[in-house]
Design a protein around this nucleic acid. Structure first.
Length: 277
DNA sequence: AGCCAGGGTCTGC
DNA sequence: GCAGACCATGGC
């Protein structure tokens, strides 16, 4: 994969397995907006980015080589061999179909707090509405990045708020969940950065101390916010997929990358309206 | 109008 | 351990 730096943009040539829409609009992140020309604009890690693609050539606009190396390279998971992972998962016929359906889907390495908070908001909710709530959360309490863009608010900022302060978000019963999470993280009771060192069950138990965090939200927080690609969050779509296609559980060879398989299945099920057996 | 959405909590057996 | 009510909100 060749990299060019023209002084304004970073250009990545022939990036394997990277489709912007499949990756940024698949329900794993909620802050990317597709532009009329098909490119995407958004914020991650307190940084604004505009990203576009021509074929497999990807351009990161208005960023630097340093920012790319320090952040975006890992955020877009560019050091993982997705073709090898996809080959391994494709041993199962349904996964082969699901991967063929969105072969350019990557799992983003989002910030731990943003992932946790976003998926607390996701519970018993739909993606369009999650995006709206997250947008209002950032506009209300995130640091301004100029021109109407805002960082995701820190746990410290949210921890001092009260339920009434979150009323404009219209997030319903989730308001007190957000505040409970923010207070535990800001107070140091839960150090998200330390969780990857724990066994998965142990890390999950820590996350589940937060009000409104159960197994599914914890698995999402670890998959999307802590690089744990073996996590397998089971939402209603994945439950249906498992009932239909994996009644005896996932095959052994899927387990190390169950989270990647999961995201392909999620898109395959919800976008294709796959009928249950 | 009723059902569903990237679920979880609380109560009661 | 497990079922069932309940939780806010909005799109269909």
């Amino acid at each position: 994969m060749q990299l060019y730096d023209n002084g304004q943009d970073i250009i990545l040539c022939q990036v394997p397995a990277f489709d912007l829409a499949q990756t940024l609009d698949c329900g794993q992140a909620f802050r990317w907006q597709q532009q009329p020309d098909g490119s995407f604009a958004g914020v991650a890690g307190g940084r604004r980015l505009h990203i576009s693609a021509v074929g497999q050539d990807i351009t990161l606009h208005n960023t630097t080589r340093q920012e790319y190396e320090a952040f975006w390279r890992h955020y877009f998971d560019l050091d993982r061999d997705y073709e090898a992972v996809q080959r391994q998962l494709s041993a199962h016929p349904v996964l082969r179909q699901a991967i063929a359906f969105c072969p350019g889907l990557r799992i983003l390495n989002q910030e731990p707090w943003e992932a946790l908070c976003s998926f607390i908001i996701s519970q018993n909710n739909n993606i369009a509405r999650i995006k709206g709530i997250v947008a209002r959360l950032c506009e209300s309490f995130g640091e301004s990045l100029g021109e109407g863009w805002y960082a995701f608010p820190t746990a410290q900022r949210l921890a001092v708020l009260d339920v009434e302060d979150l009323a404009p978000l219209r997030c319903g019963f989730r308001a007190r969940y957000i505040l409970d999470a923010a207070r535990r993280v800001a107070g140091g009771e839960i150090v998200l950065e330390n969780l990857p060192a724990l066994q998965m069950a142990e890390a999950q138990a820590v996350l589940c101390r937060i009000l409104g965090v159960g197994e599914k939200v914890a698995q999402c927080a670890m998959l999307f916010g802590q690089g744990r690609v073996e996590c397998f969050p089971r939402d209603v779509w994945i439950q249906r997929a498992c009932r239909s296609f994996f009644p005896d559980g996932l095959p052994e060879y899927v387990l190390p990358y169950a989270g990647i398989a999961q995201q392909h299945l999620f898109e395959f099920m919800r976008r294709q309206q796959v009928v249950e057996v």
